[in-house]
């Protein structure tokens, strides 16, 4: 098992952006959708288009994301499905409880019992699901490319330049340093225990027993890491870590024209959403006529 960063140098506009720009833009989009509580698909769709454009510009190959797409869909179905099942009071999805024509009903039954009920799927719930999916993808698509397109060596500096302390920023760098090491330690430990006849595939016993049997895998790696820590502390102290404000070598981060454009766009989106919602009352959830008409 090898931990490989998915990062590769690609000659794209996205990679020429300052890493801070991307993080800040992402934060603006989240704020724009969540603070004024935007649930109007007419506003979400244009934002979705912006996200999609940025996503496509990062030119991630299909084979890179192929594997995680199923997870994404499971997650989306889970959330949307749960909403159907559990909708109650509070939260934005309470709108789905508004009286609305029922399209069909899904029977639910708890296994091995006679308890069951029918869940009415209303027009309102269906439209809400569509909105919710679009809204989630609008945010997710800004994030998914990050591991593929941002050099791991730059995270620490990016944190530093966004105002974190030397120590916190370096923690980030150091974590990147250790990640592949521990992944390898974990593999070696797996192998060493298998060579002693341990078979993870055949974990027996009850829940407690099975969890306890993970000890031969977890303990060696964790304990070795605590010992490693002591030596790393020595090594860092001996090289004067934390005694003075640090120089950060790769801090030649500078905002360029394109960065200002994207940051400006982020601010504009945020302000526009706030103004629309609070100034004009536009942006809340509603089911459009045409969608209702499809079913009535």
């Amino acid at each position: 098992m090898l931990v490989t960063w998915k990062y590769r140098r690609r000659n794209t506009i996205i990679q020429r952006l300052d890493p801070r720009t991307r993080l800040v833009f992402f934060v603006f989009v989240i704020l724009a959708l969540t603070i004024p509580d935007i649930w109007d698909l007419r506003i979400i769709l244009p934002l979705f288009a912006v996200s999609l454009t940025l996503f496509l510009l990062s030119r991630i190959e299909w084979k890179d994301i192929r594997r995680i797409l199923p997870y994404m869909f499971i997650l989306v179905f889970f959330i949307v499905g749960l909403n159907g099942l559990l909708s109650g009071r509070g939260g934005p999805s309470s709108v789905t409880n508004l009286p609305s024509p029922v399209v069909f009903e899904v029977p639910i039954k708890i296994p091995f019992t006679d308890i069951g009920w029918d869940i009415p799927i209303t027009v309102s719930k269906m439209w809400f699901a569509i909105t919710q999916i679009t809204r989630m993808f609008t945010m997710a698509m800004l994030v998914i490319p990050i591991p593929y397109t941002m050099d791991p060596n730059i995270y620490g500096t990016a944190f530093k330049r966004m105002g974190a302390s030397d120590k916190v920023s370096f923690t980030m760098d150091l974590a990147f340093r250790f990640l592949p090491t521990f992944a390898r330690d974990f593999t070696i430990t797996m192998d060493a225990q298998r060579a002693r006849g341990y078979e993870l595939e055949k974990l027996k016993g009850g829940l407690v027993g099975r969890l306890q049997r993970l000890a031969p895998l977890i303990i060696p790696v964790v304990m070795q890491s605590t010992v490693t820590g002591e030596e790393v502390i020595d090594a860092m102290d001996l090289r004067a870590f934390g005694t003075k404000p640090r120089t950060w070598l790769r801090d030649n981060l500078k905002y360029a024209g394109r960065d200002y454009v994207l940051l400006g766009l982020g601010v504009a989106i945020f302000i526009l959403c706030c103004v629309l919602k609070w100034g004009f009352g536009i942006g809340g959830y509603f089911v459009p006529e045409f969608f209702l008409n499809l079913f009535v």
């Binding site: 060596n153 150091l174 030596e231 020595d234 090289r239 004067a240 070598l249």
Partner: peptide, 18 residues
């Protein structure tokens, strides 16, 4: 256990940076 950076150049520069 004494290499603290994930990249050779940064590792060598670590002390002077501090």
């Amino acid at each position: 256990r004494q290499i603290v950076a994930s990249n050779v150049y940064n590792e060598i520069a670590f002390g002077p940076e501090n």
